[in-house]
């Protein structure tokens, strides 16, 4: 059974519809990438899964319908989310940001903190530094760490490499891969950086102007003419 089943999902900002009947399944234990250009609806898709936007259609997580559920209940159900801009708490230290992530998972604080610090050792050294004063890469690490503090079964990561140096992108990719391999965590990332997405994910979905255009494994989509033309300029 798929961990996440999305059927005919439509999302709205006021009267404007920004997702048009998106349907996709995410199998447990996989890394799945949603790729697409700026404005394709990638962030809206993740916000919709979390219950942040107004939607119609169906979103089932672990067999349960969660579409109309609040973000707080979705986090409690096991969905962790690292949004595109991080949405960190800029005047709190790194550790306090992580502890806010533990709001619904207080029985696993020590275990999760250890996991986050093992994954991103720089955060352990800068526990008291306010996140508003950190570099973009460190803030992305805190954002991922905060999502991991919720003890997720499914981790949603919105554009993890946006604005980051190539070396930091590699570190983030390594951390996500390690998480997936060692804990079996299911991960969904959105990306404009198709190379990054293909290096990390086993499955890709191409989202454009709010509609799914293509889906397949990395091997299947690597040979697609459309992908070559649209994303590699070939």
């Amino acid at each position: 059974m798929a961990l996440l089943e999305i059927s005919n999902l439509e999302a709205f900002y006021g009267k404007a519809r920004s997702l048009h009947g998106v349907s996709l399944n995410i199998e447990p234990g996989k890394i799945v990438a949603i790729i697409g250009p700026n404005g394709a609806g990638k962030s809206t898709l993740l916000d919709s899964i979390m219950g942040i936007t107004t939607t119609t259609g169906s979103v089932k997580f672990d067999g349960q319908e969660i579409r109309a559920q609040s973000p707080a209940l979705n986090v409690k159900a096991g969905i962790g989310y690292a949004p595109e801009r991080g949405n960190l708490f800029p005047f709190m230290g790194v550790k306090d940001n992580l502890l806010v992530g533990a709001y619904t998972s207080r029985d696993k604080i020590d275990e999760n903190l250890r996991m986050v610090f093992d994954l991103f050792p720089v955060l352990e050294q800068r526990q008291t530094q306010e996140t508003g004063t950190q570099s973009g890469g460190e803030r992305q690490m805190v954002s991922l760490g905060r999502a991991l503090m919720t003890s997720p079964k499914l981790l949603l990561v919105d554009e993890p490499t946006i604005g980051l140096a190539p070396k930091v992108c590699l570190d983030i990719a390594a951390a996500l891969k390690k998480l997936n391999e060692e804990t079996g965590l299911t991960i969904v990332i959105t990306e404009q950086n198709v190379n990054f997405a293909m290096s990390l994910a086993q499955e890709l979905h191409v989202l454009e102007t709010g509609e799914l255009r293509l889906s397949g494994t990395v091997d299947e989509l690597q040979g697609e003419d459309y992908i070559k033309q649209a994303y590699f300029g070939a």
Binding site: P71, N87, V100, Y103
Partner: peptide, 20 residues
């Protein structure tokens, strides 16, 4: 208390942390 501070600094950040 941290949740109160979190909502005051970033509402969406608080929501995705499981805070209502």
């Amino acid at each position: 208390g941290r949740a109160i501070m979190a909502v005051s600094m970033d509402r969406k950040g608080a929501m995705v942390s499981g805070i209502d």
